[in-house]
Design a protein around this nucleic acid. Structure first.
Length: 485
RNA sequence: GGCCCGUUGGUCAAGCGGUUAAGACGUUAGCCUCUCACGCUGAAAACAUGGGUUCGAUUCCCGUACGGGUCACCA
């Protein structure tokens, strides 16, 4: 058990929607700090001015709000180490970059983008040739005074090895000669991610850096920066990536080709935020000593720990998400459930049917609110029957198209005559009929259910569907069914 | 291609030198029920591979294969 409070942060770029992998990173960072009673910070990394998307910050903050990931410091709420948006911290980075130059761990580079492109052309895997690394001081001074555009690059040691211990992956070592003199401060005066996040994490007191494993191999460069400044290195927790599976079975980083990958899309498709959070919490992490899978955020806070984080990439499984969602729907109190189901039902069924009754029938059957239109389409629409013979045939109840036709013929006049159109009465009526002729009630129910719904799987039994459809429509549909058989 | 990381059923995963190798989703057989679902009980299904170390390897070490990541004035 961890007992020193962990300060972690979530530092997204406002480049559009909230990717589910991003949300998972936020969740883990959040849980890590909350499980130790520590702070959770949100920071907006908007140093790439060209990729900014308007409204993206709102999407990020909105997602954190509906998922319940509350933060102690961040944009809007502020905090002692603000501002929490990098574009508002621009002078800070320059100050530290220049400090690094004076410390001898960084240098001004006046190479033009054109020259770098040429370099790349000559040798694709060569990288920057460190042309400006040892420029004489007077040349640098003259260039600066002449206003020649420049960047500031990190001076990576030419020899030796840099290592750090990742909390999840263990010791990671990298030969210094494998690393580039990466750019710290861009020509436009903004810092790169490589520099800004290091300065900010230090200044904001972040003790644990939680992020995707794509940073595993660039972290030695960041560690070198901490060392150069003489700052204490933070703990690193790199997370296994979220993958998706193609139609042809190929596995790759989760992206749009795999389906909905943003939190907003999933919610729009009818998944509950709690279900999504629960599912992704378990994608790459597993609690100790329990087989439980359904967890509230609150429970997660108590159970989370770095020891349970996996190293290998995890494939996002929409089927399992559906299962979580169905569990959460079933557990939803009626008022919350109705608030979601009823409007969706009204949209499809209009006001002619008892949508509350329908909603009730659906409560234990629905895996996802997005299924509603398809599930209840048959109510207002007499669907075409593709293969009546197989639809009417049911081996458990020993029904066939013929036997169903006979049943429907018998039952039709009884239904036309009855006045009591409620579930119990209808059920007794049909059951009595079945007993009378000595067949299973199921055989009668099957015939009627198929005849009125015109599809195999329905959101209720025969008599329930009849009450929803009403007497007139039921009778019409049975007549239609008989004529088709 | 160089470097880094990973590899338990179709998927998520437990395991941390000796186990009948859990559990969940999905698939499937059946049961229950007043009909569809829900629910319940079963079934099939896995330690990538070759060497070591060891009395004994899924577990530790090395190689191989496969998968992923990374080599930007993007994060």
């Amino acid at each position: 058990m961890e007992n020193t409070p962990i300060c972690s942060r979530f530092a997204p770029s406002p480049t559009g929607y909230m990717h589910i992998g991003n949300l998972r990173t936020a969740l883990y960072a959040y849980l890590l700090s909350r499980s130790t009673g520590g702070k959770f910070i949100v920071r907006i990394e908007d140093t790439d001015r060209e990729r900014l998307v308007e409204g993206a910050v709102d999407v990020i903050l909105g997602t954190l709000k509906v998922t319940g990931l509350d933060y102690d410091e961040g944009p809007v709420v502020g905090g002692p180490n603000g501002p929490y948006t990098q574009s508002e911290r621009k002078p800070i980075y320059r100050e530290y970059a220049e400090k690094l130059v004076s410390l001898g761990h960084a240098y001004y580079c006046f190479c033009t983008p054109e020259r770098l492109a040429e370099l790349h052309e000559e040798n694709e895997n060569g990288g920057y040739d460190r042309h400006c690394r040892n420029l004489p001081a007077d040349v640098v001074k003259a260039n600066l005074e002449a206003g020649i555009p420049y960047v500031i690059r990190q001076k990576i040691p030419l020899e030796g090895t840099t290592s750090y211990t990742d909390e999840v992956f263990g010791e990671i070592s990298m030969e210094n000669k494998e690393m580039q003199d990466q750019i710290l401060l861009k020509a436009d005066g903004y810092p790169t991610y490589n520099f800004a996040h290091v300065v900010d994490d230090y200044l904001m007191g972040v003790t644990h850096v939680v992020r995707g494993s794509e940073y595993l191999t660039s972290t030695p460069k960041y560690v070198l920066l901490y060392d150069a400044f003489g700052w204490e290195r933070p703990h690193y927790c790199h997370l296994p990536l979220l993958m998706g599976k193609d139609a042809d079975g190929k596995i790759s980083k989760l992206s749009k080709r795999h389906g909905a990958v943003s939190f907003q899309d999933l919610v729009k498709n009818g998944y509950l935020p709690e279900a999504i959070v629960n599912y992704i919490a378990l994608l790459g992490w597993c609690p100790k000593n329990t087989n439980q899978e359904i967890f509230s955020l609150e429970e997660l806070k108590g159970l989370f720990g770095i020891e349970g984080i996996n190293k290998s990439p995890a494939v996002f499984d929409y089927e399992k998400l559906r299962w979580f969602n169905s569990e959460y729907i079933k557990a939803l109190p009626d008022d919350r459930y109705n608030a979601l189901a009823v409007p969706a039902l009204k949209k499809v069924c209009g006001d002619n049917v008892d949508v509350y009754k329908l909603a009730e029938l659906l409560h234990s059957r629905l895996a996802c609110f997005g299924d509603i239109p398809e599930t209840v389409r048959f109510i207002n629409e007499r669907l075409p029957m593709e293969d009546p013979a197989s639809l009417y045939a049911n081996k458990k109840n020993k029904t066939t198209a013929e036997s169903c036709k006979a049943v429907l013929n018998d039952v039709l006049p009884m239904l036309e005559l009855t006045e009591a159109w409620d579930n119990d009465s209808l059920f007794e009526l049909l059951k009595g009929y079945a007993e009378g002729i000595g067949i299973k009630a199921g055989a009668v129910m099957w015939a009627v259910r198929i005849a009125v719904a015109r599809q195999a799987v329905t959101p209720g039994g025969a008599t329930e569907l009849m009450t929803v459809l009403g007497k007139n429509e039921t009778v019409q549909r049975i007549k239609l069914a008989i004529s088709e058989l």
